[in-house]
Each structure stands twice: as structure tokens, then as C-alpha cells.
Simulated assay, not measured.
Amino acid sequence: MAPGNAEGGTMWQAENDRWALAAVCLVYLAIVFLTSRGFIAAPRYRRMQGRIGEARARTTVLAAVSPDDPVRQAVLATVTARLDTLEHTNMVVWRLSPRSSWVFSIPLSKLASAWRVLHSCERDLMRLLPPDEAASRLEALQPRLEEAGQPPATTLAAAAEHLHDLEDTEAEREYEQQRAALWLATIGLGAVYLIGVTLAHQPTMMLGALGGFLSPVIGVMRSQRPSSWGVLVLAPVGGALAAIGGMLLVRMLADPELNLLGHVFLDNSWDAPDRPLALAIALLFGFSGTLFSRLALTATGQLVATGSPAGRQP
């Protein structure tokens, strides 16, 4: 092959690698977004729809009691209007059109505020319950208050308010973590793309991402308990970046001036990312964040020792 054709083929391959890496990053970002909306928000939204139906049924029953009481009917009318707002408008979900049944997205912040509105409606309905039913339901809620470390409540609405506040606070904390995970995944994927384009370490990041994916998978298989969604989303991205950083640390510690890891790691790390040993190292760094942190601490200690007067060579 002529030198010009070889150079053109190399440039064409590099361009294809950049587009492939960009496609992988965009696809994974879409997966992260769909995970946040489909696996986290959607089940809670469907649960909220069921609770709205229960509240509507309770409203219908309570409306038949004391129909001549204007205060009671005003409360029920207010609750019905708020339930309509939750169910038939875009307060919670984004749709292709107002009448479309296909949900396009469920913003976590909107979902959290909608649950607080629904809980407020449920407490308004509880205040209208007959005394015997209210007392029975209050007695049933007392053990849950004790488990949550709350003092016994004197009214059903007060007990429900304590439990609703705990539930909403926990959900909002989870939603905040998911938003942070989405932001970190977006920034991390951008860093992965820039590093892959500028440094040509696609194999290193690919094996690191594989190790990051395998780590929570094996954890679930061992403990039979699922990891948090934030960990699952960030693990492959963090694994890819940890592999890059780990390979650079290995190269530094194997440098002849430090000579802590020897020539085997010097010849199979940053400067030769396609070799089997280098790929295995990248996989290990992606799998174990502890390995990366320990090596980083070792490198930091060595740099401090080398830079101190006692550690300088005469």
C-alpha cells in the first residue's frame, strides 16, 4: 500500500473510532435518562395514579354523607379539583399532546411535588371520616409511627402527616441522588469522549467500563440485594475513567525514576494499552474502585517522599 493510502486509511479509521465512541456515549446517556424516568419515576407515578383512584372513590363515598353540610362539600370539591389537576394536566408528566396517553417523561421534581399534593388531599379526606373509622385507622398507624421513631399521634390526620412527611422526604432525597447521578454521568461521558478522542485509549476505557458494570452485577449475585440506581448508572462511567487514571498511575509508579512496579508494568500500561496485561489492568481498575484509591494514595505518598529533602537523591 502506498504511503498516502496508508495515511488516509489511518485517518479514516481514527474518524470512524471517534464517531463510534460518540455513538456509544450518546446511547449510554439515553439509557441513563430512560432508567431515571422509566425504572425509577414511572413505577411511583403508576402507584400515584392508583392512589388518586382510591381518593376519588373515597370522595364519592364521603359526598353521600351529610350532603347539606356546605363546609364538608366545599372540602370535597377542593379535593376533587386538586385530584383533577394531578390526573388530567401536565403537572406531573410531559405528554406528546394533552390528550395523549403516552407519557414522554416524568420529571422527578414534579413527581415529588405531586406526591405532596396527593398526600395533602388524603389527609383532608381523613378529617371527614366518621369517628369510629378514624379511630380504627389511627390505631393501625400507631405501630408504623413507633417504627419510624415518632411519638404517638392523637388524630388520624396528624399520624398520616408524620408518615407522609417521612415518605416524601425519603423520596425527595432519592430523587436528588438520581439527578446528581444523571449530572455526573453526563459529565463523565463527556470526559470519556474527550479522552478517547485525544489520547486514543478506547480499549482501556472499554475494559474499564466492563469492569464497572461487572462490579455491581457480582455484588447483586452474592448478596441477592440490588444496588442503588445511582451506583448502577455511574458504575460503567466511573469504571472507564478509573481505568484511565489507574493506567496513568501504574505508568508513573513503574517509571525508572521511581521503579516501584518494575519493567513489566512499564511495558504494559499507558504506552501499550492494547496488550493483554494492560487490558487486564484496565478491567481490574474499572471493577475495583478500592484498587484505584489505594494506588492513588501510594502514588501520592511516593511523590511526597520524593519531593521532601530526605527523599531527594544527592
Score class of each variant (00 low, 15 high):
P131L: 07
F104D: 01
Q224Y: 08
S105P: 00
L214Q: 11
S100T: 02
A55T: 02
T306C: 02
H201W: 08
A240T: 02
S120N: 10
L266N: 08
L284C: 09
L163E: 04
L76G: 06
W94E: 11
T290F: 15
V192A: 04
A20M: 11
A209N: 13
A191L: 13
E147T: 10
F265M: 07
R294I: 12
G289R: 14
Q302D: 03
A134V: 00
F213D: 07
A242E: 12
A157L: 06
Y45H: 15
L111W: 10
Q142H: 07
V264W: 13
P3Y: 10
A112D: 15
L156V: 07
R58D: 11
R44D: 15
A41S: 14
H263T: 13
A81H: 05
V61P: 00
E54R: 14
E133A: 15
G239N: 03
A112W: 11
V220F: 11
L118M: 11
V93N: 08
E147Y: 02
Y28V: 03
I187G: 10
L128N: 00
L128T: 02
R222A: 12
Y45P: 07
L266F: 08
R37Q: 14
G307K: 09
M221K: 03
A6L: 14
A153T: 03
A57E: 14
V75P: 06
E176T: 15
P98C: 12
D168S: 15
E122C: 01
S120H: 09
M1Q: 05
A278V: 05
V237H: 06
A30F: 13
I31T: 06
P152G: 01
T35G: 12
G245V: 02
G188R: 08
A2P: 15
M206E: 04
I187Q: 11
E7K: 12
L166S: 05
A242D: 13
L166P: 00
A41I: 11
G9K: 14
Y193R: 01
F39D: 09
E133R: 14
G219Q: 08
Q202A: 07
T85M: 12
V75C: 11
A191D: 00
T60L: 14
N90Y: 06
S293A: 15
L182T: 11
R312F: 01
T154Y: 00
G230F: 09
E170G: 15
W229T: 15
R294T: 07
V250R: 01
P216C: 03
V65G: 00
A254D: 08
D68W: 09
C25K: 01
R179L: 15
R18Y: 06
P131K: 09
R82Q: 14
A240V: 05
A55E: 02
L83E: 05
L125D: 00
L21N: 10
L166E: 09
S136R: 11
N268H: 15
K110A: 15
P151T: 08
L189Y: 10
T204K: 04
D84W: 04
A135P: 00
S66P: 00
A20S: 12
L249T: 10
L76K: 04
E139V: 05
L283S: 08
V250M: 03
L86T: 06
M206H: 08
P107H: 12
